[in-house]
Design a protein around this nucleic acid. Structure first.
Lengths: 173, 173
DNA sequence: AATAATTGTTATTCACCATATCAAATACCG
DNA sequence: CGGTATTTGATATGGTGAATAACAATTATT
């Protein structure tokens, strides 16, 4: 169960490929009936999640950060000095898969591994100065573009209610 | 952007692997601070979606249907006689990837392809009798186990509000 | 001291996602 | 009508995510 990952792609391009706009004067076939599909929570959940990730990627594109990478940076900022297992587990990333992910962040000098003094098996993780700076910029982009757009669509109260229910499902379901 | 797919796996097993329960008398390290992560809608959205899919797979396991396959069957029931392109597009599945998916359903005799009389390029899709029967059973399982559990967790009103907001995001965001 | 468990890592497998390309069939257009 | 473009289902391929097994180094257990 790896959580909150997404490839850095041109989201608009992918979206266009799927929508397959009827290419102008095309034979317009009648739209399909979604039927009970529109009552399936999982279906809406997945489609909404794809849309939100797509917008996240677009908003934070200047910094080339995926949702998963952003979540790692956020977690490292709040919890410096933890090891790979702890960070990976909290995010629902399997430790083997977290290695390559960290390699990517470290090669961009956004975070650093250091051998722990107490336990020489584990690597202590922390943000670099550049990592802190990039994260700060990312936060601003996310807040001013991404989350702001969600707020605009739903309204603050609805957005809060939505977040609350999603969190509840994630925790208790 | 393929929507509503999920592998048929033992969800509980995967979940256990991630949670990594502290194996009894293990050195209990203090839990990490999620920090601003808990305010990120996309993060909760993704984690909730994984939980919901996991439960769906569990509930409908006797019939060996993934969310994606279930959505195809639902769509075929409501829209018999459509071709592969139409069904795939509506679900956000790319046509090349839809071929193998249909092969799977057809090899289990859940649906059938037939060459169209009007346009001999396209395949007209429809549920088989077995497909209708399996879908009927699946619907009952989903309603009585899966959606019922969500209703119990959130309450009917909240569940409806959640669905409404997710649909809005999926459509308008 | 011997054995078991943990940490980071590699390798590998599988599902999903996306693009390019193709042959057959159809639509379009001069 | 005939030639070109488009559409449909299909194949091949590459990329990414997710999951498991296994390993060496280190630490914990007993």
């Amino acid at each position: 169960m790896t959580v909150y990952k997404a490839a850095v792609v041109d989201a608009a391009k992918a979206s266009r490929a799927v929508r397959k706009e009827p290419a102008e004067g095309a034979l317009e076939t009648s739209p399909l009936q979604l039927g009970e599909l529109s009552e399936l929570l999982g279906y809406s959940l997945k489609r909404a999640q794809l849309k939100v990730f797509e917008d996240f990627l677009h908003c934070v594109a200047p910094l080339q950060l995926t949702p998963a990478q952003f979540s790692v940076l956020l977690l490292l900022e709040k919890n410096p000095g933890r090891n790979q297992t702890e960070i990976a587990n909290t995010l629902g990333i399997l430790r083997p898969n977290f290695v390559a992910m960290l390699d990517g962040l470290e090669s961009r000098d956004l975070c650093a591994r250091a051998r722990s003094a107490n336990d020489r098996r584990s690597h202590v993780l922390m943000l670099t100065d550049k990592g802190k700076a990039v994260l700060a910029r990312a936060k601003k982009l996310v807040a001013s573009k991404h989350e702001a757009r969600l707020n605009e669509l739903l309204g603050p109260a609805n957005r809060a209610a939505l977040l609350s229910m999603l969190t509840k499902i994630a925790r208790e379901f």
